[in-house]
Design a protein around this nucleic acid. Structure first.
Length: 565
RNA sequence: CGGGAUGUGGCGCAGGUGGGCAAGCGCGCUUGCCUUGGGAGCAAGAGGUCGGGGGUUCAAGUCCCCCCAUCCCGACCA
C-alpha cells in the first residue's frame, strides 16, 4: 500500500470527547470515527486490525471444532417471547416494528435463534457435539456507552454456542473453549487473567471471564497471589473478618445523633470504628422492599443480593420511599423494630454491641446485638469483596486490580433448550434436551484493550499479530530520487517476502511522516535517508526503539528478526 | 435514569458575566515561493444557519424557556 493513495486521516490534537488512551489514539491515528454515541465507523486502518482480530478468533474457533455460520441480526419477537427474554432483557434490547406492526429486535446475543436452528435441523445424538459460531455486529442499547470501542451500542462480537448430549459433553466443550480463548488472547498480545464470573441475565450455572488487565477497565478483579483464586468482584467471595470474639452483650441504648447520617459522620460522632456500624440499605425488588445489612466499612454486592432475593430488578429505594418504610429520613435506618424482610451479611451477624440507625430522625442505637435485637431472617454473603480480605480458599489477603472483559464463557445447561423445547434422540431413543454452552469474545473491544496495553506517549505500538501494516518504509526526502528509488525497491522486496508494508510516499516533510508512523504504531519502520546513496537504511523497532543500520539487501532479514518468525 | 458539564469553519479553543453592528485565534485545507532526519517558513485564499426551535429587545453567539446532541461521575449492564 502507498500512503499517498491510502485514507488515514490522522489528527494532531486529541478530540475533546475522548478520555482514555485507546479511544484517543484510535481516533487520532485514523482508525475509527464516531457516528453517534457508542457507534463507530471503522476506517481502513481500523478495519484492517479488526479483521486481524477476527481472523485469529476464527482460526482458534475452527481449531477447537467450531463451525462458522451467520445468524440474522434482525430477529422476530416471537422467539424472544418463547424464551421469556422479550420482557427480561429490558430496555437494553433494541426493539422495532415492521410495516405490519410486528415486533422485532436487533440481536444483542443469539441463544434463541441458534437453539431454534438446531432444534429444527438436528435429530440425533450422533450429530453431537455441535459447536456453531458467528462473528457479527451486536446491538445493545447501553444506558451509558463510553470509552470509545470499550462500551458501544453497536459492536463486533464472536459468539459460539455448544450443543452437547450431556453435562460431560458440555464440560469437554467448555474446556476446549477455555483453551481456545487462552490462545486467542495470547496471540493478540494481551496480558489477561481468567476469573470466575457471575452469569447475569444470560443465565446458566458456571462462568469464567477473560479480563485484559488495564486501569481503564470497568470491572474490578480480586485475586489471590498465594493460591491463584481470581474472580470478578461481582462474584468474588471472601472470608469474613473481624468476628466479635466473645464480647459480652450490653443493654440496647438509644442515643441522639443530630444530623449524623453517613457512616463517616456517625463514626466520628460516636467514636466507634466503621466496622462496628450496621449499615442498613433499603432496596426495591420484584417482591417488594427489602432491607440489607452490611458493615459500615463494606459495600453491598448487588449481584449477590439479586440472587439471594431472587429478583430480576433491584434498585436502591429513593429518599421518600425510605422515609415511608423506616419512618426516618435517609441515614437513620436500622434493623431494630424495622418491619421489612432483612438480608443480613454474615459479618453483621457476627457483630456484638454494634451501632445502627433507630428508624427515627437524629437517633441511633448502640449496643445492638444481632439475634437479640432483631431477627436474622436471611444470613448470607452480600458484600463486595475487597483488597485485603482473606481469600475464600486459602485465607491469604486478596489483591484487586482493574480489567476489561474481553471474553466470557457460560455453561447454560438446558436453560434455553428446555424453554424452546429443543430436543434430540439419545442412543435409547429417548428425547433429551440439548446441554448448551455459550462463549463470547468482544472483537472490537479486544482491539481497544490491546491499545490500552500497548501504547506510549507517541502513539500505538501494535503487537505484530494485529498491526495494520507490519512495516512502514519511509523515504526522508520525497524529492530525492535516490531515496525514492531505494524506498520503492525495499517496499517491493518486503511485499514479495509476504510482509504487509506501507510505503510513505507522501509529499510531506520528514517530521510529519515520523510522527504519523509512531502514532499509527507500525511495529517496524524503515527509514531511507541520506545513506541511501551508500545502499544503507535504518530499521527501527517501534516497541524497543532500537535502530540498526543495514544494507538494503538485508532488510527482509532484519524485519524477520524483529517479528521473531 | 439521577448528578455535573459542554455544543462557535474539518480539529482544538477564545468571545458570553455587563446584548451594540467586525465572529476571532491556533492547527489543518487550497495556491505560489521556499524547505526536506521529528508535526518548518513567507505570502495570498477558501471555509461558520455560533446545536435546533421559540421568546425578550431597536438590536441576541451573548439574556429567558423548551428540545436535541455529546462527554464525565453514579446507577445499570452477556
Amino acid at each position: 500500500m502507498r500512503a499517498s493513495t491510502f485514507f488515514m486521516p490522522t489528527l494532531r490534537e486529541v478530540p475533546a470527547e475522548a478520555e482514555i488512551a485507546s479511544h484517543q489514539l484510535l481516533l487520532r491515528a485514523g482508525f475509527i470515527r464516531k457516528s453517534a454515541a457508542g457507534i463507530y465507523t471503522f476506517l481502513p486502518l481500523g478495519l484492517r486490525v479488526l479483521k486481524k482480530v477476527e481472523e485469529i478468533v476464527r482460526e482458534e474457533m475452527n481449531r477447537a471444532g467450531g463451525l462458522e455460520i451467520q445468524l440474522p441480526i434482525l430477529q422476530a419477537a416471537d422467539l424472544w417471547h418463547r424464551s421469556g427474554r422479550w420482557h427480561v432483557y429490558g430496555p437494553e434490547l433494541i426493539r422495532l416494528k415492521d410495516r405490519h406492526g410486528r415486533d422485532f429486535c436487533l440481536g444483542p446475543t443469539h441463544e434463541e435463534i441458534v437453539t431454534e436452528l438446531v432444534k429444527g435441523e438436528v435429530r440425533s445424538y450422533k450429530q453431537l457435539p455441535l459447536l456453531l459460531y458467528q462473528i457479527q455486529n451486536k446491538y445493545r442499547d447501553e444506558k451509558r456507552p463510553r470509552f470509545g470501542l470499550l462500551r458501544g451500542r453497536e459492536f463486533v462480537m464472536k459468539d459460539l454456542y455448544s450443543f452437547d448430549r450431556d453435562e460431560a459433553g458440555l464440560e469437554e466443550s467448555y474446556r476446549k473453549m477455555y483453551t481456545a480463548y487462552e490462545r486467542v488472547f495470547t496471540r493478540c498480545g494481551l496480558d489477561f487473567r481468567v476469573v470466575e464470573a457471575d452469569t447475569g441475565a444470560i443465565g446458566g450455572h458456571d462462568s469464567h471471564e477473560f479480563m485484559a488487565l488495564a486501569a481503564a477497565g470497568e470491572a474490578t478483579i480480586v485475586y489471590c497471589g498465594a493460591c491463584g483464586y481470581a474472580a470478578n468482584a461481582e462474584k468474588a467471595e471472601s472470608r469474613s473478618t473481624g468476628e466479635a470474639g466473645g464480647e459480652r452483650p450490653r443493654p440496647l441504648e438509644r442515643v441522639a445523633t443530630p444530623g449524623k447520617r453517613t457512616v463517616e459522620e456517625v463514626t466520628a460522632f460516636l467514636g466507634v470504628p466503621a466496622r462496628k456500624i450496621i449499615k442498613t440499605l433499603v432496596y426495591q425488588s420484584d417482591a417488594g422492599p427489602v432491607a440489607v445489612l452490611v458493615r459500615g466499612d463494606r459495600e453491598v454486592n448487588e449481584v449477590k443480593l439479586q440472587r439471594i432475593v431472587g429478583s430480576l430488578r433491584l434498585e436502591l429505594a429513593d429518599g421518600p420511599t425510605v422515609e415511608k418504610l423506616t419512618g426516618a429520613p435517609v441515614g437513620f435506618a436500622g434493623p431494630v423494630g424495622l418491619n421489612l424482610p432483612l438480608v443480613v451479611d454474615r459479618e453483621v451477624a457476627g457483630l456484638a454491641n454494634a451501632v445502627a440507625g433507630a428508624n427515627a430522625a437524629d437517633a441511633h442505637y448502640v449496643n445492638v446485638n444481632p439475634g437479640r435485637d432483631f431477627t436474622l431472617d436471611t444470613v448470607a454473603d452480600v458484600r463486595l469483596a475487597a483488597a485485603g480480605d482473606p481469600c475464600i480458599r486459602c485465607g491469604e489477603p486478596l489483591s484487586a486490580t482493574r480489567g476489561i472483559e474481553v471474553g466470557q464463557l457460560f455453561k447454560l445447561g438446558d436453560k434455553y433448550s428446555r424453554v424452546m423445547e429443543a430436543t434430540f434422540l439419545d442412543e435409547n431413543g429417548r428425547e433429551r434436551y440439548y446441554i448448551m454452552g455459550c462463549y463470547g469474545i468482544g472483537i472490537s473491544r479486544t482491539m481497544a484493550a490491546v491499545v490500552e496495553q500497548h501504547h506510549d506517549a507517541e502513539g500505538i505500538i501494535w503487537p505484530w499479530s494485529l498491526a495494520p501494516f507490519k512495516v512502514v518504509v519511509l523515504p526522508v526526502n520525497s524529492r530525492d530520487e535516490v531515496q525514492a528509488a531505494l524506498a520503492e525497491k525495499i517496499y517491493r522486496m518486503l511485499v514479495t517476502a509476504g510482509y504487509d508494508t506501507i510505503l510513505d510516499d507522501r509529499q510531506e516533510r520528514p517530521g510529519v511522516k515520523f510522527k504519523d508512523a509512531d502514532l499509527v504504531g507500525y511495529p517496524v519502520r524503515i527509514t531511507v535517508g541520506q545513506k541511501a546513496a551508500a545502499g544503507q537504511v535504518e530499521v527501527r523497532n517501534r516497541r524497543s526503539g532500537e535502530t540498526v543500520l543495514v544494507d538494503a539487501a538485508d532488510v527482509v532479514q532484519a524485519v524477520t528478526a524483529i517479528c521473531g518468525v
